[in-house]
Design a protein around this nucleic acid. Sequence first.
RNA 1: CGGAGCGUGGCGCAGCCUGGUAGCGCACCUGGUUUGGGACCAGGGGGUCGGAGGUUCGAAUCCUCUCGCUCCGACCA
Length: 451
Amino acid sequence: MYLSKYFLPVLKEAPREAEIVSHQLMLRAGMIKQQSAGIYSWLPLGLKMLRKVEQVIREEQNRAGAVEVLMPTIQSADLWRESGRYDDYGKEMLRIQDRHERDMLFGPTNEEMITDIFRSYVRSYKDLPLNLYHIQWKFRDEVRPRFGVMRGREFFMKDAYSFDLDEPSSRAAYYRMFVSYLRTFDRLGVTAVPMRADTGPIGGDLSHEFLILADTGESEVFCHGDTMKLPVPDRNIDYSDDAAIEGIFKDWTSNYARTDEMHDENLWNEVAEGDRMNARGIEVGHIFHFGTKYSEPMGAKVTGPDGKDHDVYMGSYGIGPSRVVAALIEAGHDENGIIWPDSIAPFDVGLINLRVGDEAVDTACVDLYNQLTNAGFDVLYDDTDGRAGGKFALADLIGLPWQLIIGPRGLKNGEIEVKHRATGERENLTMEATMNKLTAWQKDVNERFGG
RNA sequence: CGGAGCGUGGCGCAGCCUGGUAGCGCACCUGGUUUGGGACCAGGGGGUCGGAGGUUCGAAUCCUCUCGCUCCGACCA
């Protein structure tokens, strides 16, 4: 992408209403624009990140055996009356009427609708297990939206729903999602720790939150240090091996790990002092096992091997990609701007032309741009005629992993400056050496984080 | 929903108390000189002060109502 042809409206100063760093940087980097309290437009750079996060989540859901659908944002109130939640949900649910004065609502979640889909088609235990998910906008009319897209009223969410014949197989489904979340956050280049969670209004008896550790996180977390050292299963994981999956779940949940809400001082004191880790985190995922809470009132049954009808056991599994984007920034930034993880940045490389109009420099830039693009890199080429300082500031602000700086000074020696955003390391390399370095980096990233 | 605060060119702010029809920095446009870490000079465009009503000869400034936004608290992917 040539910057001159892109739409990247950056701000030198953050608007006053932005309090936390991810919100400030998302506004400054031209990623989002607030349209109303807790409601945002996603501008090209922000949308690009949102899509990348979404895609990683999708790949890992698919790998774990979940099947994607897409349900509407607007739902009929009737479904919610069946589960009893139409009255329970309160003012967080945005209620609307259509022209015929039928009660509708903007979905805050989709348990009812997915249960309706399930009961419409599935009759036999032979069709189980089943896990359906979608990635769709949700609306919860929060009393007080804040922190930009971190707690918006409208937010993007991946929500998966598992259906099983009985409790044990339903727990196995829960474990699969648990493990897929470990892999998802690992691929997103962040440390997300699963914590025992309160089941909340959705109900059920088994629930975990996944928190990305960041100093600016809202929740205080208490966990055993060993949790951080546990290996995340690689892409060759076999989700059909229930025992192995349960083993991973047990490994990750055997140590103490709770947020302040669930914190238990007595249990905490049993953890050896040197192992206690006290940090802050941002909740980016939440999984629930809730059994027949919805299937029973809504009549979602299958015939079992015994020839009798059984209410299906269900769980739901959510990740908020829009919040994840903000959380990545909370977890990775410095005074100059965003530092995206290597694994997931809006572009891989920023190519900076320091002297637009100088034929040699222009030619070198375009050559390198084409080479990189052909090699599969996503490159943002700053071909604007701005000054060096402004270009460097922009590059640091949007935080692409690599900056390739090409100007007449270095080009005289056949060299360009290669800067790594995260470490600040810079070196002068030939074009060829640059390509080799980036190719090696790309290979390494693919091996560590690729699908 | 309880408490606090803010709305003045695109962004950040001053002016308001002590009414006299709007100013600064950045950004933007034109020309020139510049060009490796947010250049300089000159010229220029853009707001009628969130909205409505009122007081007054006169309102960004005072009063009333209203809308929007933010922060603290209770709640949440």
